[in-house]
Design a binder for these strands. Structure first.
Lengths: 253, 253
DNA sequence: AAGTGGTCTAGACCACCGG
DNA sequence: CGGTGGTCTAGACCACTTC
């Protein structure tokens, strides 16, 4: 018999399915359009619903689809570019930054943060919660950890909690000279509270940006920001809003 | 009857399972240790294997576990920090960069790259493949697109293909004055070829770093690098190798 | 050959959203 | 209320690694 090298590595059904769906999205659908429901799609392709879902999950991970329980599956718009690494380093809360303070509470930070701060095990910090919205959609939730020693002159007259107190803490922080900052990006899954704020289910994939702010020869603040991985493209450098399309032909709805 | 507000929002089994496993990993396991196989684990927790797998998948996504077909599931070491945004911008292939050129072929770039290059639809580019290894493990695969117009003086004497030609192209690129660069990070899934190079299955989650290099008032090169999302933490700024642990208590094996 | 994780099935029920 | 996506089950078979 002749050698039949072809098909010696059959690709999984869900992988092939994903490719087919991806091409269909490019050619036959517009942004925002609703796909048939999962049971119909599975039947149409002759696969079990679980297999179909495996393909949809990947497409959602790649930002091509958006699924909402009780509603349906829609074609996602291109990812929005979100600037996270400004050319010039600035304190959080500086004029013009994209974050909205939500709350501020005193606490001892979790162990992971203590390791980054390199502070004492039980040093108190101000924990500031902020959220970031672009194009009317929530894209990120942030926890800022600011050792009390970084804002020693915080007036007792300021609000004891809430957004007002958050702003007061950040205002105090501005008084320090910022020596530098650095960031790291990694993949994570949304905790329950972050998920609620991002309008996603717990466990949704997120890009976790950890930023350290240096002043007076030590780490003066730490930010842990979680961005929706399905809708965001994090930009570093000069290019803030430049559009990058996977498919330049994609039509607007 | 008394109001029983508690348990009004029962969390999914796999989510609870993930929490339990995560704590067990912290307290009862060391890096590199092998977990019981999935069928045993599922039986031990009284759930179906699919449910157990859903928990394991999340833990793998978070870099806590490593699973290999035919081998088993092991406790993953902390993610490695990989510097991707140097303080000073440099051309790819400059002395001391972490990439190893693998090949170079001429081609017309895919549509997505044409959009980034803002070049003519059918301009030829040199496509350089490179790979990045740290700690003996492959962490990233890269495709570099360099318009022929960026390296006009490429000698015909140089090797026609392979690593030698890749180095020759990059060497020519160094002669341009680099005006600046910017990067973007987003979540993606590994294509078949990248997956093979990264020692993962196709579709594995990856962090896609798109970098544009500017010279002479235009985009002189574009790099699309895919990093293993399970094992990598991408660092920007001054902090290259500083350790950040999720769990400082975790023991080394 | 034995054991692992990866894929796939055909069902069931639940949580959520909209009319 | 009906329809959607989300969770869960109990099985089966396949691809791969190791011995």
């Amino acid at each position: 018999m002749g050698t039949q090298q072809l098909e010696s590595v059959p690709e999984p059904k869900y992988w092939h399915l994903k490719t087919v769906l991806s091409e269909a999205l490019d050619s036959d659908f517009t942004v925002g359009e609703i796909l048939p429901n999962e049971r119909d799609l599975a039947a149409r392709f002759g696969v079990a619903r679980a297999t179909l879902r495996q393909a949809l999950e990947q497409l959602e991970l790649e930002g091509r689809l958006q699924r909402r329980r009780g509603v349906g599956t829609t074609v996602a718009p291109p990812r929005v570019g979100v600037a996270v690494g400004a050319e010039q380093h600035v304190w959080p809360g500086a004029v013009g930054d994209a974050w909205q303070p939500a709350d501020c509470t005193p606490a001892v930070p979790p162990a992971a943060v203590v390791g980054i701060l390199e502070s004492g095990d039980d040093e108190q910090v101000h924990t500031v919660r902020r959220s970031r919205v672009t194009h009317g959609q929530p894209v990120a939730a942030e926890l800022l950890y600011i050792p009390t020693s970084s804002v020693p002159d915080l007036s007792a007259i300021d609000a004891p909690s809430g957004p007002a107190r958050a702003r007061a803490v950040l205002r105090e922080l501005q008084r320090l000279d910022l020596d530098g900052q650095d960031s790291a990006v990694e993949l994570g899954s949304a905790r329950a509270d972050d998920a609620r704020e991002l309008d996603r289910l717990p466990g949704a994939p997120v890009l976790v940006v950890t930023t350290r702010f240096f002043a007076e020869g030590r780490t003066a603040a730490v930010s842990i920001a979680t961005y929706r991985a399905d809708t965001c493209r994090l930009t570093f450098g000069d290019s803030g809003g430049v559009e990058i399309h996977h498919d330049p032909e994609r039509k607007a709805s």
